[in-house]
Design a protein around this nucleic acid. Structure first.
Lengths: 231, 231
DNA sequence: CGAAAAGCTTGATCCTGATCAAGAATGGCC
DNA sequence: GGCCATTCTTGATCAGGATCAAGCTTTTCG
């Protein structure tokens, strides 16, 4: 682990409130590993061996069924992932691959389950993290069921913009094909969706998206005040 | 509370392992209330006041956006619901209504949060419940993104049949319009989907669905060994 | 029991998004 | 810098599912 990284990881909501000793126990049993891009980290159906914490890079979580793939989530640093599989000790429901050179902290799943039992603060943090993850999935599912493609894209842009600091500018962190899969559409249709949004307050240039007319974009995308707020 | 009910509730995975005293604290602060059908219990966006435990009846959780509704989950007794909103103390992401006369145990949200903090067993159960709920949502989302309508219906029937005891017979517990909404399609299309499945091993008569040829149904629906198993 | 309402099914048409097929742009790499 | 591979875009066509419009069945309730 490089200097400065341990505190960064220790500061994650998941580990922040833990007892110092228990945190050491977690860290000393874990190891940080570097992965090249396009490497499969684990596959759907496997038994979870490690809780993963993305320290640096970019990871895609995806699912497949009947020959088709779909992106479920794009993980940005610094974030833990597949916590639910580790806690329930049940097979992964998603596969994971790096989409950029990445460094990942691997925490043995059994160790997580054990320390969780002993450290109430970690348990509470885990509980909160899972509740949040659940809510995110509820949002994603209603999005998928109720909105059509261009609207989904519009809302994703609004949401990214807020997360990137509200500068009316969004830099897409992943390829558009990946974004399309995340939004549940084909790359062709994503292109067309960007085209549609061109008439509703955005301008695209490569991976750079600029919101030229927020009111128009919001009128078109109808962000839900409850569902889309990061409150 | 009627005799026999308290033990039934106390036996829920959520409350089973708690300290006796803490459980009393929960129960003595809660109350059981009866609701007529078609009554809205709470609305999306509201601040969560109670953890709900459906003791008897049937409840629909649904979301809306841009004038449209969609059913997110049909809750059968005995089950708790909207645990995540209570834990995070954030607005409901779904609305709830009774679809049959129902009796619901209402546990004040603040009380839940407080007792959770004091009782590690409850916290652990909560954590597990949330992890399971998260995984269910992951399944629902991939289902929605990757399968088409008749396939979704086929899998739902297979899944219900397993849950109802494997007698090759499924009794639909809700109206078909509701089922359609849960599956993310229109009632018209659900009818047609049943029609399609008629050629793939099922026979429908009102709310009674019979699996006449499991192999055919599975060949058509391609249940995912990992995702659909209740393991 | 019988009428009204609600739910379900079936058919016809429409629309969103998928697929197929080329080009244009971008990026990696020697 | 220039070539090759990949990604992105644009156009044409197709298909799954939505919508619209009736009939039909079941339930509800006086």
């Amino acid at each position: 682990m490089r200097p400065g990284e341990r505190p960064e990881i220790a500061n994650l909501p998941l580990f922040r409130e833990m007892q110092e000793g228990q945190r050491d126990r977690i860290f000393s049993g874990s190891f940080l590993q570097a992965f090249p891009p396009q490497l499969t980290l684990f596959e759907l159906g496997q038994h979870p061996d490690f809780l993963h914490v993305l320290v640096d890079g970019l990871v895609e979580l995806y699912a497949h069924s009947a020959g088709r793939d779909t992106t479920m989530r794009i993980v940005e640093p610094v974030t833990s992932f597949i916590l639910a599989a580790v806690i329930t000790d049940q097979p992964y429901l998603m596969s994971a691959r790096t989409i950029a050179p990445s460094r990942i902290l691997l925490v043995p799943a059994a160790l997580v389950r054990e320390v969780v039992k002993d450290d109430c603060a970690l348990m509470q943090a885990t509980m909160r993290e899972l509740a949040q993850a659940y809510r995110d999935m509820v949002r994603a599912l209603t999005d998928m069921k109720l909105r059509q493609s261009a609207e989904r894209l519009g809302n994703l842009i609004l949401q990214q913009e807020r997360r990137q600091g509200g500068s009316s500018t969004v830099r897409l962190k992943a390829e558009k094909r990946l974004l399309a899969s995340l939004l549940g559409m084909t790359p062709e249709n994503l292109s067309r969706a960007f085209g549609v949004l061109g008439g509703h307050g955005i301008a695209v240039s490569g991976a750079q998206v600029t919101i030229t007319d927020r009111a128009a974009l919001e009128a078109f995308s109808r962000p839900d005040p409850v569902r889309d707020d990061l409150a």
